[in-house]
Design a protein around this nucleic acid. Sequence first.
DNA 1: CCTTAATCGAGACGGTACGTCGTGTCTTTAT
DNA 2: ATAAAGACACGACGTACCGTCTCGATTAAGG
Lengths: 202, 202, 202, 202
Amino acid sequence: MNEQKKGTRRRGEILEDAILLAAWEELSETGYTNMTMESVAMRARTNKAVLYRRWNNKTELVMAALRKHLPKIKNDIPNTGDLRSDLYAYLHGLMEPLKLIGTQTIRGLLMEPMVWRIIISSMPQVIEKRSENKLMTGMMEILKNAELRGEIKLEKLTPRIISLPWAIIQYEVITKLEPISDEAIAEIVDDIFIPLLRATQQ
Amino acid sequence: MNEQKKGTRRRGEILEDAILLAAWEELSETGYTNMTMESVAMRARTNKAVLYRRWNNKTELVMAALRKHLPKIKNDIPNTGDLRSDLYAYLHGLMEPLKLIGTQTIRGLLMEPMVWRIIISSMPQVIEKRSENKLMTGMMEILKNAELRGEIKLEKLTPRIISLPWAIIQYEVITKLEPISDEAIAEIVDDIFIPLLRATQQ
Amino acid sequence: MNEQKKGTRRRGEILEDAILLAAWEELSETGYTNMTMESVAMRARTNKAVLYRRWNNKTELVMAALRKHLPKIKNDIPNTGDLRSDLYAYLHGLMEPLKLIGTQTIRGLLMEPMVWRIIISSMPQVIEKRSENKLMTGMMEILKNAELRGEIKLEKLTPRIISLPWAIIQYEVITKLEPISDEAIAEIVDDIFIPLLRATQQ
Amino acid sequence: MNEQKKGTRRRGEILEDAILLAAWEELSETGYTNMTMESVAMRARTNKAVLYRRWNNKTELVMAALRKHLPKIKNDIPNTGDLRSDLYAYLHGLMEPLKLIGTQTIRGLLMEPMVWRIIISSMPQVIEKRSENKLMTGMMEILKNAELRGEIKLEKLTPRIISLPWAIIQYEVITKLEPISDEAIAEIVDDIFIPLLRATQQ
DNA sequence: CCTTAATCGAGACGGTACGTCGTGTCTTTAT
DNA sequence: ATAAAGACACGACGTACCGTCTCGATTAAGG
C-alpha cells in the first residue's frame, strides 16, 4: 500500500512519522503486549536500531505514538458566559478523542493496563505527570471564569471537588471500557457537580 | 527459615499455599516484571512444572496470589444507626487492606499496570467482575439502612451517585499510589457525598 | 481391543508381559526417542511406578522388551554333515529374526542407534555382552564339526576370521538398514568365507 | 584462558568456530547426554539463541562439531607401487584419527550410540551417505592401481569383497570401543584380504 | 473368614534440558 | 552521518521427559 521507491531512503521526520504510525496501528490492532519492536520496525519497513535511536525503550515509543495519534484534546477552554455550558463543552471535549478512536480500539488499548497510565498522563489539561499542583488547570480556568461572573466562590472548593468530574469519568471509562455517553456527562454536570457546587457555596 | 523435613514431599493445598505465598512475596518485593516463574518456584522450593500444572501462565499465577494475599475487604457492612458513621466505617474498611500492605508495596504493585485490573477486580464488594447489577452492594445496603431510618430517600439516587465515593477513592489511589488518608475519607464523606445526598433529596 | 474387566487388577507376570509388549510396540512404531515411559505405561494401562519397580531406567526396559520380542535366534546349531550347508543354515538362521520383524521395523529400531547395541548384544549365540571369550560359540561349533569331518583345520583360524561372516552381516545391516538377502549370504559363504578357509588351510 | 576483549563482539565464522570447538570439548569431556546446549553456549561465551540460529537442534550441532573436529582422514591415496604396502598405509590412515582422539574419548563418544552414526557417516572416503555407488572410492583407487601394475584383476572383485577390510574394522571398533592395533591391520591385510584376493583371482 | 503385607492405579512432585521469543546492543554495508 | 539489515547478548517463557514419592484401592496369602 505504501509503495516506496527503492533507492530512496527515508530519514528524519518522515521516517519518524512512519514509525509512529506503524506503532499506533500495531497498538490498536494487537495491543501493547503483542506489539513488538520488531513488528513495528517491519511495518514501518525499517529496523529496530532506528527505533532505539529515537526512543529508549518500548514504553517511550508507545507513549510517543499515543501522544501523536490519540486524538488531541481541545486546548481551548470554553468560555460561554455560563458555567453549566462551559462544563458541558469541556467534558465533551475531553471525551471526543475517545469517541473518535472507537470502542473497539479503546478496548484494545485499555485491556492492556500498561496503556492506561500512558493515556491518562497524556491528557495534559487534566493531569500533568502527577505534578498535583498543575492539576486540573483546565477545570480551574472554567471555575475562575465562573467566579468572575459571580456564579461561584472558588475559595470554598477543594482540589478533590474540582477534580470530581474527571474522577468519575476515568472511573467509568476504566469500568465500562468505552467512551461515556452524553447522558452520562449531563448527569455528572447537572445531578452531581453543580448541585455539589451549590451545596458547597452556602 | 522455612525448614522442611527432607523426605517429606509437599503436595496439594500445602504446596499450593507455599507457592502463592512465594509469589506474593516476590510480587511485593520485586514487582510483576522482575518476578519470574523460576524465582517463585525457587522461593517455594519447588519447580516451574509444578506452577504450570496449576496456572497456565504468569498472569494467572499472579492473579491467584493477589486474590489470596491481598488483604480482604471486611465483609460485614457496618450498621451504627447513623449514615455518616456507617460511611466512615465502610470506607475505612475499604482502605484498611491497602494500609496493611503499605505504600511501598502498593507502588511496587501499581507501578506495574498489569496488576491494576487484578486488584480492582478483586474488591468484590464494590465491583464484581463488571456485572453492573451486583455493583455496590455494600454501599447499597448502607443506604437502604439509612432509608429505613428515614435519613434519605433511595429512589432519588442514581447508580453513578452511589458509586461516587469509590470512584473518588480509586482515582486517588491510582493517581497518588498510596492509600488515601483518614482526612481524605472525612472530606469525601462530609464535604462531598453527604452534601450531595442532601442536595439530591430536595 | 484388549478388553480388561474393571475390578480385576493385573499383577506379577501377566502385568509384566503386558508392559513388555507395550514397550515393544511403542519401540517398533515410534522409535526409541519417541517412546516415553509414560507412553508405555499408558499403552499397558498401568503407570510409571510399576515400570520403575521392575527396571531401573528406560534403557533396561527397552533391553528387556527387545530380548523378549526380538524373534529368537535358533539355538540349535545345524549339523548337516557338510560345512557349506551348515554355514548356509546357520547364517540364514541368524537373519530369520530380522526378516520376521520386517524392514520397516528394522529401520524404526536401527535409526535410533541406541538400539543397535542392545540388539547386537541380544544375539547371544554370536556376541555375548562383549565377553570375547564366549564369542562366536555357534560358529565355533560348526567349525569344530567340520574339523571332525576333516574338512578344515581349526588351529589355523584366528578369531578374526571366525567372526568374519558376522562382521560382514552386521556391517551390511547397519549400512543398508534391512535384512540381507539370501544371495548375499550365498556370496559371503561361497565367495568369501569358504575361499578364505581354503586359502588359510594351505 | 580465552581472554576476549570486551566491547568486541564476535560474529559469523569466528563465533561459529568458537561454538563448534566448545561443543567438541563438551562432547569429548562429558559425552552426548551430559552436553547441554546451555553448557556449550556458556563455554563459548555466547547464548543458546545463537546456537539455535545455526543448528535446529542438539543433534545437528553435534554433527557439525564432529564433522569439524573429528580428525580428518587423509585424503591422499597411497601409491607405493605395491598393493600390500598401499593397503597398510591406507588402513593405517583410516585409523589414525581414532588413535589421535584416544581410547578414552572414543568410548565417551561411542558409548552414546547417537554418535555412532554421525561418526560413521562422517568418514566420507569410505561411506558416502549410503550412496553405494560412491562407496569405497579410496579402496577402489588402490585396487585400480594394483590392476594397472598387473597385481590383480579388478573385474573379479565384488563390492562386498572390496569393502571387507572396512567392514572388519568397523565391526571391531564397535565391539572393542578402541582403535584397532597395527597387528590387527596386519592380520586383516595379510591373513584375510590379500589371501582372499589371491583366491578370487584364480 | 478375616487380617495383613504387598502390589497396583493414579497422578503429583522434584529436577533438568529443550527450544522459542522478546528486548535492547552492536557491527557492517550502503546511501 | 545516518539508514538498512541483521547478528548478538541476555534472560524469561512454557514444554517435555525422566525418575521419585504419596496415597488410597485391591488382592494374595496366612492365621
